[in-house]
């Protein structure tokens, strides 16, 4: 039992992001409302961002800014003192991407709403069917 708790607790950040991912995927697949789907998509992306950021963490390490400035070359910076900056940098890009994706998705959602007067998938499907019927 204790092993299990240790297993769960030792990797708690992974469990966290897996749960978030699953919530996101669930929303994308199961929700009928387009906005909820978009929110799900965003949760999904955020889960991955969290995953990256959490991998950068180290125990007892500070933010990756070298505290002693130029000239104090007596001791060199030790990597263990700083958390890994690269995942943060990467995630800055990923955040930009996810914001842009969200923007495009919301734009299209607005377009869809203007066209069908609804954001519910089944209502939209109904009105597509009605229009297709009207064509013939």
């Amino acid at each position: 039992m204790n092993e299990w708790i240790a297993f769960l607790a030792g990797k708690f950040n992974y469990w966290g992001f897996i749960v978030l991912m699953m919530i996101g995927i669930y929303a994308i697949i199961a929700k009928k409302n387009l906005i909820k789907k978009i929110i799900g998509m965003n949760i999904f992306q955020t889960a991955i961002i969290l995953f990256y950021v959490s991998t950068a963490a180290k125990r007892d390490a500070g933010i990756p800014i070298i505290t002693h400035g130029h000239g104090m070359s007596g001791h060199s910076a030790r990597a263990v003192d700083y958390i890994n900056p690269l995942p943060h940098v990467l995630m800055l890009t990923a955040i930009v991407v996810s914001v842009a994706t969200l923007g495009v998705a919301l734009t299209l959602a607005v377009k869809v709403y203007r066209q069908y007067g609804s954001l519910e998938e089944d209502e939209i499907a109904d009105s597509i069917r009605a229009r297709a019927g009207g064509d013939q």
Partner: peptide
Amino acid sequence: RAPLAGLNYILMGTIGASFYLLGIGYLY
């Protein structure tokens, strides 16, 4: 129907790209 098709594409496409990102994360 283009906007709706585009929106579905976004949802699927983002899942795909995010999976790739996740995989790269493991490699890193």
